[in-house]
């Protein structure tokens, strides 16, 4: 009898049905606002599996645009620069255009509909207060309502609303990836001149990255609940000759992209399932098309999406 009590109490303890304090979505609005409208520079550590690296991010906001630079501090020099919806990559000793964030305002904010989608798919919980990089932070947990998405835990700077730390957790609450600021400077001291000088001479991505909205005729029969199609385009991609169809679905916090293109690869070059932190990639042939699914969702969700993709067009 004593054993049964112990086991039962263990089961009750382990059940996720314990009462948790809900958290106000105002935190999310504050955070989205702060991450785009604040000047800041800081060093953060990014970790997944046995991989750890340090990067510096600098962000400045101006009346009509944002400048942002993400640079690696470990290993070879890698940078990503974002300005006014354009993205550049500094890699292999040269700066190359690396796409855009089309259809966005200069200051994207979380839209009410985006917040409501988020609330349908995740339970938001107050995870208490904590200290990160010497700052006071409010922790918030996004607990998914099924196992086709990861849980996210974020630590928001109480004073500024900036994100100080974020962790992606699997269904057993193991960390899939996380990043955390080790040092963060907010406000005027950020060196605007240095950042902007780097932008001189950078050309917009131009026609090479143009995309058009289309109706591709591809449908996903088993899309996980809560994911909605937000984009369906035909675009060019750097290494592909033929245009690629990209269809994007999002549940408010995570997204899944499907890339559909004519297959010009050997069987051996097809990737199958691979991973980098919370990002998973699943690639396979469907008929004569090569389909690649990419998303910050668990592998089982990507497999479900790709395996239920079919062409329903003419």
């Amino acid at each position: 009898m004593r054993v049964s009590i112990v086991i039962l109490s263990l089961l009750i303890w382990a059940s996720p049905a314990l009462a948790k304090t809900p958290v106000s979505i105002d935190w999310l609005k504050t955070m989205a606002f702060a991450s785009h409208q604040t000047d800041y520079t800081g060093v953060f550590v990014y970790q997944y599996a046995n991989h750890v690296e340090t990067s510096r991010i600098t962000h400045i906001a101006e009346a009509d645009s944002e400048y942002e630079k993400l640079e690696s501090l470990d290993g070879s020099r890698r940078e990503i620069i974002r300005h006014h919806g354009q993205v550049w990559c500094f890699v292999n000793h040269k700066i190359v255009p690396a796409g855009t964030r089309p259809g966005r305002n200069a200051f994207p904010a979380l839209l009410p509909e985006q917040l409501s989608i988020l609330g349908e798919n995740y339970e938001l919980r107050d995870a208490g207060t904590d200290r990160v990089a010497g700052h006071n932070a409010q922790a918030i947990l996004f607990q998914p309502k099924d196992n086709l998405r990861y849980a996210h835990k974020i630590w928001v700077h109480v004073d500024s609303g900036l994100l100080l730390k974020a962790a992606v957790l699997d269904e057993k609450a193991r960390v899939v990836e996380q990043y955390a600021f080790t040092q963060l400077q907010i406000g005027r001291e950020v060196d605007r001149a240095a950042l902007k000088s780097q932008l001189v001479g950078l050309q917009p991505s131009g026609p090479a990255n143009q995309s058009v909205n289309i109706n591709s005729g591809w449908v996903i029969d088993a899309m996980p609940a809560g994911f909605r199609k937000v984009t369906e385009i035909q675009r060019s991609m750097r290494r592909q000759h033929a245009p690629v169809i990209q269809i994007v679905f999002t549940d408010g916090l995570s997204a899944v992209s499907l890339f559909i293109e004519p297959n010009d690869k050997d069987e051996d070059d097809i990737e199958g399932l691979s991973t980098r932190g919370a990002i998973n990639l699943y690639q396979k042939l469907v008929g004569d098309k090569l389909i690649t699914a990419v998303g910050e969702v668990p592998p089982r969700a990507l497999i479900q999406v790709l395996d239920s993709a079919r062409y329903n067009g003419k």
Binding site: M31, S35, I57, H59, I80, R82, L253
Partner: peptide, 9 residues
């Protein structure tokens, strides 16, 4: 949507 909420990180 990650970049909307958390910015460039």
């Amino acid at each position: 949507p990650a970049a909307d909420m958390t910015g460039g990180t």
